[in-house]
Design a protein around this nucleic acid. Structure first.
Length: 150
DNA sequence: CGTCTTTGACCGGCGC
DNA sequence: GCGCCGGTCAAAGACG
């Protein structure tokens, strides 16, 4: 509960644009890679290591522009690696923690959050970096169906 | 009193 | 067919 500058409650609505830029101290975005057991570091290493650490901005990349998922209820997936101590920051959306799970790949537990709003298919998954506890990997799934309500 | 958090257990899916 | 893992839900408890 110290540095709570900003938290991407959800990726910016990319209307036709599958690319957005957000001000962030230090964060990396995972594209289609997705968070799985292993490739995580690979993606981070490739995205951050190559362009240098902490450039100052976060580049959001939309893996698939197919909105077909709407039928299923899921919009898209977004993963962020941020240097933060807190995962739950109220930036306009409320998140309700609905589960904690220990992943074999990480000595740290994984937290599951869901949009507090009813009818909001948005889900959030937060996990601490395996080698950098100071870093948190936040994964957003879906798009908000309602306006930001606080 | 209300709200939100936390833990455990359960279920489903997938792999071998 | 069985095992494993991830994911979700529920209830209780704690705190403000």
């Amino acid at each position: 509960m110290s540095c709570n500058e900003f938290i991407p409650s959800h990726p910016p609505e990319t209307d036709g644009v599958n690319r957005s830029k957000i001000e962030f101290p230090e964060a990396y975005f995972i594209s289609d890679g997705w968070l799985q057991d292993g490739p995580i570091e690979d993606h981070f290493a490739g995205s951050g290591s190559g362009s240098g650490s902490g450039s100052g901005s976060l580049l959001i990349h939309e893996p698939n522009d197919n909105r077909e998922s709407e039928s299923t209820g899921i919009g898209g997936r977004y993963a962020f690696k941020t240097k933060s101590e807190v995962e739950v920051l109220d930036d306009g959306y409320r998140w309700r923690k609905y589960g904690k799970k220990m992943v074999k790949n990480s000595p740290n537990p994984r937290n599951y959050y869901r949009c507090w709003k009813e009818g909001c298919p948005v889900k959030k998954r937060v996990e601490r970096d395996r080698e950098d506890p100071s870093y948190v990997i936040t994964t957003y799934e879906g798009v908000h169906n309602h306006q930001r309500a606080s």
